[in-house]
């Protein structure tokens, strides 16, 4: 975390982008945006733009990676070369391998993997534009895409980060807050069972600050959960209404 305090992050009780301490950036999700994939979702979260696609369950290659009793959830997080101000060198790096692993493990917690032994569920997360908190964006979009793909799962995963800037605990760090703040705490939350499936921390928080940050994030995740569900309903309810009418005719 940057100790470099050349930028004022809090002014008159408001944050640098005018938000309150416990305010999320604007989130928009659209389900089922790609025709070729079994399921997909597009998410805009502040200035972040993320696309997620799901393929499968399908045969696992390489075969030695198959699990005889369950499916493997294999996520791949990738940042587009044009997603950041300086060109990002394409291909997997230390950071994207880490995020791929953590998204895979978070999603595996909700998917009923035992229903598809020996197979793989591929999840692709492409970051088109990055502006802090892309791992949360990726996880949130991926779980919508999984539901869109008709994968059996116990719940959706909502994800959000909170952190500390200038000694103040705040929700959903923006670009500058992430770079010049003191701590960042992304979580993945399963609302139905009130469980966590992702927890990371960068920087330092006291015990009290940690509790405060957690409470903030969980509340925000519940909000995000509703946006996710709304996105899925929007796609499928129109189809359903029509289907009902068709049946009445028949």
């Amino acid at each position: 975390m940057g100790s470099n305090k050349d930028i004022e992050l809090i002014k008159d009780g408001k944050r640098i982008d005018g938000r309150d301490f416990d305010e999320l950036r604007e989130i928009k999700i659209k389900a089922g945006v790609l025709k070729r994939a079994d399921g997909s979702a597009y998410l805009e979260w502040g200035k972040n733009k993320v696309m997620a696609a799901v393929y499968g369950p399908r045969e696992m290659h390489p075969r030695h990676a198959q699990e005889t009793t369950k499916a493997v959830v294999r996520a791949r997080y990738n940042m587009a070369a044009f997603s950041v101000p300086d060109r990002k060198r394409p291909g997997p790096d230390r950071r994207s391998i880490e995020i791929s692993k953590l998204i895979s493990e978070a999603l595996e917690k909700v998917v009923f993997t035992e229903k598809y032994p020996r197979s793989v569920i591929d999840v692709f997360v492409e970051v088109l534009q990055a502006s802090a908190g892309t791992r949360c964006c990726g996880l949130t979009a991926a779980s919508v895409a999984l539901a869109d793909a008709g994968i059996p799962m116990s719940d959706l995963v909502a994800s959000c980060a909170s952190g500390k800037i200038e000694g103040q605990v705040v929700l959903d760090l923006g670009k500058n807050e992430d770079n010049y703040g003191q701590a960042d705490l992304p979580i993945g939350y399963i609302p139905r069972s009130d469980e966590l499936c992702l927890l990371q921390m960068d920087g330092n928080l006291s015990e009290d600050e940690y509790e405060e940050a957690m409470d903030m994030s969980i509340e925000a995740c519940k909000e995000i959960y509703e946006i996710q569900k709304e996105a899925l309903r929007e796609k499928y309810s129109t189809e359903l209404q029509a289907e009902k009418l068709n049946e009445e005719e028949m």
Binding site: D38, A149, Y236, E239
Partner: peptide, 19 residues
């Protein structure tokens, strides 16, 4: 994700997408 159907005392969810 699917449609709720009730048949012979069982409640099912019929998928609307997927393989």
């Amino acid at each position: 994700l699917g449609v709720k159907t009730i048949k012979k005392g069982y409640v099912n969810v019929a998928a609307q997408s997927g393989r």
